[in-house]
Every structure is written in structure tokens, then in C-alpha cells.
Design a protein around this nucleic acid. Structure first.
Lengths: 233, 233
DNA sequence: GACTTTAGTAGCGCTTTGCTACTAATTCGC
DNA sequence: GCGAATTAGTAGCAAAGCGCTACTAAAGTC
């Protein structure tokens, strides 16, 4: 049956409290880490929260996320992508009815944090978070993992130049398993995604590694067959 | 520089007008189609809009999308997935500051529409839409296409039982190119996603086709290498 | 009963991929 | 100074995957 209540025939936008929450993701000390802030109210149920704010005035959601990232990190973030909107009734630190989550990808060990109120947590050892924000973190990690092979996620977690071993380490972190060096490099070569620089890095022991940069070249149409083997659920 | 304005130190959620907009996607007459509604106000700038409403009371975003889908289609939709939130300053028919888009996947030719105010439009021949909603449609189509090989999108656009030729036609519609029958079936077989029923369908001319149903079986760990060839931009 | 149309399969050759086994260049320990 | 350890990078083989042509199968059309 068709439901034809009056508000359906002439819908009207409703006011709702809104927040923009960011999940800053970065490789730190051989693990994948998320940046959490100490809750301003020490009597709060959870001691840690995601950085967040409400969008201001005419500011877009993406701009709000960039502003929160900038004010949290003390520098502009280059890779900010929306995860999705969260609008269930789970608790949010600002009691927002709807929260829009953003993933901020940050290269590892870029600068040290100059605040005791901001701490990196290994994604496998997260403290209790307000339930809405916990869902945002989980979805954010799922987001980066599922787009790893469609979007240059891994390159956003590295500085502009990097060694191929570093790149492989990022993939291994995100996939949670070891990869074979030769196969990894062969596949990378075939995709024309990186180009070598003329610099080499000596990282303590062992042979120095050549530095590469992310420089995707146009390649001929990828008329590959369908992949059923990646479908889940 | 760290930006420490007062509102940053103690953020507060802000009120914003909110809408939930749905993109009903379905194969209709050998093309991919989107369902549009006639604008209630005939003096409006655009004659056609996406079905939408504001969430009510404590209703979650997903529940609101289900309700809009149900009231539009006259029946419950089974596959509803959030696209993302749209919060730029583009125009929305209800002047919502933030709109959350949902994709509703509907099997083709299920039932005829019992309203002149609802029309299927070929995705390649869409009429003018309010700019915010146009962005939602574009993102919705991009959404289904990009998740085609990670999520059982194609099966949601088909009835519970279907022939393999129908399944292949859905993939060809979404990918915009022809696929080879034998390769398609071999890949599908290898993924253990479908199981045959004991029914066959005679579709006018030609040999009858066996009907299959979507029944994903657990398969051994897919320890495949990394795919760099799908990375874009 | 020949012709057309759609369903479904066999199998060949080329490409891709996983893997072992190598070579190369550096630091460390003595 | 020199072998051991360590990290970078490559060669090449065997197996699996994939694109494609060419087939067989079962229905309707005339």
C-alpha cells in the first residue's frame, strides 16, 4: 500500500543537530594508528574521543573536516575523504543527532604531537569511545581497507618519496598479511603508478633502497574480466 | 600554527536542516534507470526531483531511507545502502543544508508504477534536477559501479532466481561493455556465489536456460596479491 | 526437416601470479 | 680487513587464470 501521509506529499527538511568527526589514520611505529583527543570533561563516560566540531555558517562538510583536521594537527591535511553519515541513536560526545565521519590519511612520523591531549592509539588497542564514534572509527578503517585497490590510499600514508619496501609495508599493515616482494613489485611495475627518483636512502644496515614517487601514468584501457572472488556477504 | 579558538576547544553540535534522498536504481527495458518524481510545485525550477523526506523524531537515517523507499514504491525495498552525505551549498528542493543520499537497488520490471508522478529515466537521458540531487544521482551510480566487484550489487538488481544470461546482462549494463560468456561463467563458477535450481525458463525462442539463485558459499581464504591496476586518479 | 536463436561447454594459447633461488650493496663484529 | 648479517632487488619456473574460437544442445519458426 502507498503511504500518503501529508508530510510525505509535501516533505520539508527538518532541523537536526550535526557534527563532523575525523578519524586521523597513520602508520606509527610499525602499526596502524588512530589519533584520539582527551575528553575536555574529565567526568565524561569515556576519556577519549575523536576530534570533531559542527560545521559553521555556510561552510561545507568537507571544509569543516579540513578545518578540524588543521586545528587538530596544526597543519593542513592533504587527504581527507568522507566515510559516511551516522544517524542512529548511539551516543555522541556533543549529542549530535547526525555525525558525518571523515578519514584523514597522514604519512607516518611526520611531526611529533605537541600536545598531551592528543595520542596515537594502535587500531588493535583502542580505548573505550562514545559508541557513535567507535562506529565511525570502525567504518573508517573498513573504508580505507576496502578502497585500497581502487584509490591511492597507501600513497597518502607515505611521504612524497618512499622506498618500495615502505610501500609494501603499508599494504601489509592494511591487509594484515605478508606479501611476496617480487610479485608485489612486478604488479606495481605493470600499473605504471610510481617513477624512480635519482635518490637512494641508506636506512642503517643493508643495501640502500631507491626512492620512488607516486606518479600515475595513463595506461591503456583495462578491459579485464569481472572479479567475483572479491564479493563478500 | 595551532588554531585554538574558543569554539574549537569546546565544540558544540549545531542545528542544520536535513534531508534523506533516495536514488532508486533498476534495470528497465535493457537500460539502467533511475526513478524520479514530478515536482509538487509546478513553478519549480526543475520539473523532476529525487524522492526525499526528512527523518522523523528518533528515526535513524537508514530507517528514514527505508520509509521513503516504501512510500515511493508501495512495497518494502530490500537493498538500501547509504551513498554519503552531501553538504555543499548546492540547491536542494527542500533547501536542506545537508542531504544524505541512499541507493535503493530494485530488480527490473517487478511491478508497474501506479502513479503518473513517478517515471523511470534512462541514466543516460536524465532531465534537469536540482543541483544537489544531480550530484546524489551521479554519486549513486558511481557507488554501485565501484562496488560491483566487492558487494553483491548485481544480484540485488535481479529477482531471487535468474538465468546466467540475465546476470551477465546486468554486469554488462553496469560496466558499459560486452563480456565473454564462457569466461564470465567460469569466473562465476570459481567463486561459488550461485547455485542451480531445478527450474528452467523458456524465454520464447532458443534453448531454455537454467535458473540460479544467489547463495554464496564460504570459500577458502582468498590470499590474492595486490591489485594496482584498478587504482584511479 | 532445415534454419534461426539462445544456452551452455571444450580446449588451446597466452598472460599473470606465487614462489624459490639467486645476486647486489651496505653495516656490524671482530 | 673481512666474513656474517641484513636489506634491496631480479631471474625464471610451474601453475593457475583468462580471452577467445569453436563447438554441442535444445528450443521455436517456416
Amino acid at each position: 500500500m502507498r503511504d500518503r501521509s501529508s508530510s510525505d506529499a509535501h516533505p520539508a527538511a527538518r532541523q537536526a543537530t550535526l557534527s563532523v568527526d575525523i578519524v586521523v589514520i597513520s602508520p606509527q611505529a610499525k602499526t596502524l594508528a588512530v589519533l584520539l583527543a582527551k575528553h575536555a570533561d574529565s567526568r565524561a563516560r569515556e576519556r577519549w574521543i575523536l576530534p570533531w566540531d559542527a560545521p559553521r555558517g555556510e561552510e561545507s562538510l568537507a571544509d569543516a573536516a579540513l578545518r578540524v583536521a588543521r586545528s587538530t594537527l596544526g597543519a593542513a591535511a592533504s587527504a581527507v575523504e568522507q566515510i559516511r553519515a551516522f544517524g542512529d541513536n548511539r551516543r555522541h560526545p556533543g549529542d549530535a543527532e547526525v555525525s558525518v565521519g571523515f578519514a584523514v590519511l597522514l604519512p607516518g612520523n611526520e611531526r611529533s604531537l605537541d600536545s598531551d591531549d592528543l595520542v596515537w592509539f594502535d587500531v588493535d588497542e583502542l580505548p573505550a569511545l562514545p559508541p557513535r564514534q567507535r562506529a565511525i572509527v570502525d567504518a573508517g578503517l573498513e573504508f580505507v581497507r576496502s578502497r585500497l585497490d581502487q584509490s591511492p590510499i597507501a600513497f597518502r600514508l607515505l611521504p612524497p618519496t618512499f622506498t618500495l619496501s615502505e610501500l609494501q609495508a603499508i599494504y601489509e599493515l592494511l591487509l594484515g598479511r605478508r606479501l611476496h616482494k617480487a610479485s608485489f613489485r612486478r604488479a606495481l611495475q605493470a600499473a605504471y603508478l610510481v617513477e624512480p627518483t635519482d635518490e637512494w636512502r641508506s636506512e642503517g644496515r643493508g643495501r640502500p633502497a631507491q626512492l620512488f614517487r607516486y606518479a600515475p601514468k595513463k595506461r591503456r584501457d583495462n578491459r579485464r574480466g569481472v572479479r567475483f572472488d572479491l564479493i563478500t556477504s
